[in-house]
Amino acid sequence: MDLRPKTEAELAEMVAGLQAPVRLQGGGTRAIGQVAADDVLTLSGISGVVDYEPGALTLVAKAGTPLGEIEALLAAENQRLSFEPMDHRVLLGTQGEPTIGGVVAANVSGPRRISVGACRDFALGVRFVDGLGRVLKNGGRVMKNVTGYDLVKLMAGSWGTLGAMTEISLKVMPCPEVEATLALHVSAPEQAVAAMSAALGSPYEVTGAAQSGSVYLRIEGFAPSVAYRLEALEARLRRFGDIERIEAAASAKLWQDIRDVRSFAKHDFVTRVSLRPTEMPVFLAKAQADHSFETLLDWGGGLAWLASDKDALGGFAQAYCAAHGGHATRIKDAFEACAFQPEAAPVARLSQGVRQRFDPKGLFNPELMARG
Rank of each mutant, 00 (worst) to 15 (best):
137 K>S: 09
195 A>K: 01
344 A>P: 03
141 R>D: 10
333 D>E: 08
145 N>P: 03
156 A>K: 03
190 E>Y: 02
229 R>S: 08
157 G>N: 03
55 G>V: 03
151 L>D: 04
35 V>S: 10
366 P>C: 12
225 S>I: 11
240 F>Q: 01
18 L>K: 01
325 G>E: 11
11 L>N: 04
275 L>H: 02
21 P>Y: 07
142 V>H: 04
230 L>C: 09
197 S>P: 00
288 Q>S: 15
250 A>S: 14
317 A>I: 04
269 F>D: 03
241 G>Q: 02
64 G>F: 09
309 D>G: 11
125 G>H: 00
269 F>E: 08
211 Q>V: 05
153 K>C: 07
51 D>V: 07
293 F>S: 07
213 G>F: 00
42 T>G: 13
227 A>L: 11
167 E>G: 10
366 P>I: 07
14 M>T: 14
117 G>I: 02
267 H>V: 00
361 K>C: 09
300 G>R: 06
250 A>W: 07
355 R>M: 12
66 P>G: 08
233 L>D: 03
154 L>Q: 05
20 A>C: 00
152 V>E: 02
291 H>T: 11
277 P>R: 06
145 N>H: 07
89 R>P: 03
319 A>V: 13
24 L>T: 01
287 A>D: 06
144 K>A: 11
362 G>W: 12
118 A>G: 00
25 Q>A: 12
326 G>W: 01
146 V>M: 15
372 G>E: 03
303 L>N: 03
